[in-house]
Design a protein around this nucleic acid. Structure first.
Lengths: 339, 339
DNA sequence: TTGTAGGCGTTATCAT
DNA sequence: ATGATAACGCCTACAA
């Protein structure tokens, strides 16, 4: 079945394609009669606008590219949900791609998206990413570029991020208020800004409350349960073991909890643990885990809104940096009785 | 900065755009010299193919539409990951949309995707969906239509589904083998085929092992923890309460476990519970939950492969229905000692 | 081996 | 209020 075009409608009505186009686009200087006629015929012939042709003509594809490390991570899939829900009603389609945390892949993807004439790119950079060139190219083509969560400082780019510093600060302060004296910190890849900021927030909370920062209380790991267990073990074997852990990941926190229970510690009485991300499982546990919520849905919606603003302000270049506030979800793993 | 086109390259080299196009597409009847020249100039001028123009010309957009109820459900985001990983290397972009389980939204989305000239649609239908028309339209336009997980029987459509019957059968059989005598079943929306099949598999396993099916042991609920608790309570208040539950969802299973623990039952000694979906949290629990794994990644990859096959077999209409086998992940919640 | 010309479907700019 | 025409960028018969 051939697709029907405006020419088919035109032929049917003995008018010209231009008129049909105008009628369909509600051009004011078309008689109501023809408009009606055209619309009816369009319906009858089952006409559908060809968005590709429109895109070629207008230079606008109505597609935006969204780039993340992995789609199936809870955090990212929530962000994407937010983006889709904000952009779909405005007529945009969301194209998703995964970098697998590889810089090369990211560069390829960005190139491909540009070739596909996307109207904007929303991205959370890969762990490996160090160069800027592909982002510069995006901006040179006047394609809006919005970073979310993991950003790259670049002139002309916008961003929506979480106040990781504050999240870590809240978490640490909460532990202090629970009476914890020796608070350790588990972190991940410190090459990423977000983890640096969490570390910084942790430090600041300590010193703000008259506690000294001890380097040996900071331990790096992969985001896995076993790694969390191992790290906890190392911490507990220190001459002066900690009495609380603020982990930059929930899986790390979970692993730590498992190890601490194994060696007979009572949580939260003997030891408090706080995670980061507020993964779904943290609230399902028998011992629910306190965690910093990153508001991914809001982050996605906000990133989409920033994109829309840029599209609206034709010509005027906007550079907007939104910082969202995290919320500490306090649960059993850090809530001492009587507090 | 204006985009460079093949005309710019042509002008630069005093040749014609057609030659440039051929050179870039590696047309055999172009001299190696010009090819090289063209490629160098393309590089130098930072030329990028315009995929929209190509799409208009060829009728192929190199975009596929993927439609799911919600992107952030673990099951769906894993499927999407599989699809993207399979299709990206082949040069396709993946457009995602969410139906929010609404039939209207689904119809709109499908229309929009068709307007956008997608080369294929991969979809898991909404709970509400009853009509077929939008799918018929897809097939009439010769656009490959592949259902995954939740399908609609329709001539010309392909599908990749899970053998839900078998998953339920395995789960129930496992409970029987553990010595459970009175096995209840928690289900969700029986208007969806998948839940019907799970119920059927449950029944068959019972009768195959000489146990009688009791309607009062089947209880419907929403997929929430509280609903699981309530349902478990109702079951336990029966004159003859069950000694095991096979739940069609993991959250239902979790809720049930929480209630059972509250009333002092020991799991798995007094009571066994099996869930469905193998959500990440099931393995993180202090009492890890046995669950049926749905192999979402494989499902996504398979759906993508089916789509690719259809694209390869130009003209020939293929209708393919793949059924994947679930795996029972046996964990503590159903594993009696000594078994 | 390369050039010419037309068309994919739409819209914007002239005319009429 | 409508028609004619060109253009978006690319590709491909057909010619040369």
């Amino acid at each position: 079945m051939k697709k029907t075009t405006i020419y088919d409608i035109a032929k049917e009505l003995n008018i010209t394609a231009a008129t049909v186009s105008r009628a369909l686009n509600n051009n004011p200087r078309i008689s109501e009669d023809t408009k009606k006629l055209v619309q009816e015929t369009a319906q009858r012939l089952n006409y559908k606008q060809n968005r590709v042709a429109q895109a070629l003509k207008s230079g606008k594809s109505n597609n935006v590219g969204v780039v993340v490390p992995y789609i199936n991570r809870n955090f990212f899939s929530n962000i994407i949900r937010g983006i889709e829900e904000e952009l779909n009603p405005k007529g945009y389609h969301v194209i998703i791609s995964q970098t697998h945390e590889k810089a090369n892949k990211e560069i390829d993807i960005v190139q491909n998206l540009l070739n596909a004439q996307v109207d904007g790119i929303l991205i959370s950079i890969s762990r490996q990413t160090s160069s800027d060139e592909h982002f510069v190219q995006v901006l040179e083509k006047n394609v809006p570029l919005i970073f979310f969560d993991r950003k790259k400082e670049i002139k002309g780019g916008s961003s929506v991020t979480l106040d990781d510093f504050d999240g870590a600060y809240q978490a640490t302060k909460h532990l202090i208020e629970q009476g914890c004296q020796k608070i350790a910190h588990m972190t991940i890849d410190l090459s990423l800004l977000i983890y640096q900021n969490r570390l910084a927030g942790y430090k600041k909370a300590l010193t703000d409350h008259g506690m000294t920062f001890k380097p040996e209380y900071v331990i790096g790991l992969q985001s896995e349960i076993v790694a969390g267990k191992d790290a906890a073990q190392k911490l507990m074997e220190l001459p002066e073991p900690p009495d609380a852990i603020f982990s930059s990941t929930d899986l790390g926190a979970l692993g730590a909890i498992q190890y601490l229970k194994e060696i007979g510690l009572k949580i939260p009485d003997d030891f408090c643990v706080v995670g980061f991300s507020n993964e779904p499982f943290t609230q399902f546990m028998e011992l629910p885990i306190t965690s910093v919520d990153q508001a991914p849905l809001t982050m996605g919606k906000t990133a989409a809104k920033v994109f829309l603003e840029q599209m609206d302000s034709e010509g005027v270049k906007i550079e907007k940096n939104v910082v969202l506030n995290p919320t500490l979800e306090i649960r059993k793993s850090s809530l001492k009785k009587g507090k």
